Amino acid sequence: MADLTQEEWAKQLSADTNAVVLDVRTQDEVDEGIIPNAVHIDIYGGQEFISKVEELDKTKNYYVYCRSGNRSGQACAIMNQLGFDNAYNLVGGITEWEGDIV
């Protein structure tokens, strides 16, 4: 897992042709806005979260975010334990995101 600043995350994401953006917030939070093309899997889903993550392609690079960066950091750690080599945590989360939100 790597913690990336907002600038590092956006720059690396824009240059990555193998990227998946993963939103691990609750549905209520997602309803307030989501980064375009993000996949939503709620980390509070417990075993359902783990099951859904295990279905993801481990060869992709995952850019993970939540509201502040704490839950996404936990999600990246779980993903690493499940065999994902490239999970990047957005420090500061969507709260500090300056890019597009839909």
Rank of each mutant, 00 (worst) to 15 (best):
I34Y: 01
V30L: 13
I35C: 04
I41W: 06
E48D: 14
E29P: 08
S51W: 00
Y63D: 04
V39G: 03
D57H: 08
I43L: 15
Q47M: 03
D31P: 00
Y65K: 12
L56Y: 03
G33Q: 10
Q74D: 14
D31E: 11
D57F: 03
E32I: 09
G73I: 02
T59R: 06
E48F: 00
N61C: 03
N37W: 00
D28G: 10
V30C: 12
G73V: 01
E29C: 07
A75Y: 02
R71K: 13
I41A: 08
R71C: 07
Y65R: 09
V64C: 13
K52S: 10
E29N: 11
A38S: 15
I34Q: 15
K52L: 03
G73K: 05
R67Y: 15
A75R: 07
G46I: 05
L56W: 05
F49R: 04
I35R: 09
T59N: 06
R67G: 14
I34F: 01
A75Q: 09
I34W: 02
Y62G: 01
V64G: 10
L56F: 03
Q74N: 13
S51E: 15
I43K: 11
K52D: 12
D57W: 04
Y62M: 01
Y44A: 14
S51G: 00
S68D: 06
G45T: 01
S72M: 05
S72T: 02
Y62L: 01
Y44M: 15
P36L: 12
A38L: 10
Y65A: 10
N70L: 05
K52P: 00
P36A: 10
G69P: 01
Y62P: 03
K58W: 05
G33F: 12
N61T: 05
Y63L: 09
E55T: 12
I43V: 14
E32D: 11
K52T: 01
E54Q: 14
V64I: 14
E32T: 15
G46S: 08
I41M: 06
K52Q: 15
H40L: 14
E48R: 12
A75P: 06
V39N: 04
V53W: 04
Y63P: 06
Q47G: 00
F49E: 04
S72G: 04
V64P: 11
Q74H: 14
I50N: 02
Y62H: 03
E32S: 13
G45W: 01
H40I: 06
K58P: 00
Y65S: 08
K60M: 07
K60E: 02
V30S: 03
I43C: 08
R71S: 11
E48H: 02
A38C: 08
D57T: 03
V30M: 05
R67F: 15
K60P: 07
Y44T: 15
V30R: 11
E32F: 10
A75W: 04
G33K: 09
D57Y: 02
G46Q: 07
Y63V: 07
G45S: 07
D42Q: 10
G45D: 03
P36N: 12
C66I: 07
Y63K: 02
E54T: 00
F49S: 05
L56P: 00
Y65G: 07
N37R: 13
S51Q: 13
S72W: 10
G73N: 04
A75G: 06
Y62F: 11
D57M: 02
N70K: 13
V53M: 12
G45Q: 01
P36Y: 12
C66E: 12
S72V: 04
G33A: 10
E48N: 08
K52N: 14
T59A: 12
E48K: 13
